[in-house]
């Protein structure tokens, strides 16, 4: 997308410069054809491809129902901290552990205002909205610590609402019964 955008940008600038410096070259292409190709045909083709590709990618990232649902962690946001609740009943504040190499569903809600749940290195963001529950499916492929932030302005503590995600091996994660309701292989 970045390279495509750069190419289009340079092409438009080049054509404009040409129209000013060597008008005859552009004029010889014909005014109607310039508008038709530059304004209609080329962008339509590019946009169609983009929209389809984006939809396919979006489908993969969504928390669609599947036969065996992934691990679900309930997240409650409030001014200004995050509470994580594991299936096993344990709850933690501002830090969460997840198993590596496995999809995890975060079910987000808020107790007060709208917050934005975002772990930049793991994927997209989703809002935690009072009265609603939104589910985002994320996956850490490598063990380590990932930083998370609040992305939606939520008042004066907006900047000081970070949390950390610790991705640990599955054995380590599932050995703590308070985290996982049932033991998974």
């Amino acid at each position: 997308m970045l390279i495509g955008a750069a190419v289009i940008f340079l092409a438009v600038l080049a054509i404009s410069a040409l129209a000013i410096l060597r008008p005859a070259v552009v004029a010889s292409f014909g005014a109607r054809r310039t508008i038709l190709w530059g304004g209609l045909i080329v962008p339509t083709v590019i946009l169609t491809i983009l929209v389809i590709a984006a939809f396919a990618l979006g489908e993969r990232l969504l928390a669609t129902p599947r036969e065996e649902m992934p691990l679900r962690i309930d997240v409650t946001a409030r001014q200004w901290n995050w509470e994580f609740r594991y299936p096993g009943g344990e709850s933690t504040a501002n830090k969460v552990r997840i198993p590596v190499g496995e999809d995890v569903d975060f079910a987000l809600t808020s107790e007060d205002v709208i917050h934005g749940f975002w772990i930049p290195r793991l994927g997209g963001k989703l809002d935690a909205i009072p009265g609603h529950t939104n589910v985002i499916r994320l996956r850490a492929d490598r063990p380590g610590t990932y930083g998370g932030v609040c992305a939606e302005y939520c008042g004066t503590g907006h900047a000081v609402m970070p949390f950390t995600v610790e991705a640990v091996s599955r054995e380590e994660f599932y050995s703590v019964p308070a985290q996982s309701a049932e033991l998974r292989p």
Partner: peptide, 25 residues
Amino acid sequence: SGLVAIPTGVQIFAWIATLAQGRRP
């Protein structure tokens, strides 16, 4: 949202075509 780029593109290329029609601008 992507679609709205098309009529905007039409305008930009109409301006470019106008510039190209005259003598040097």
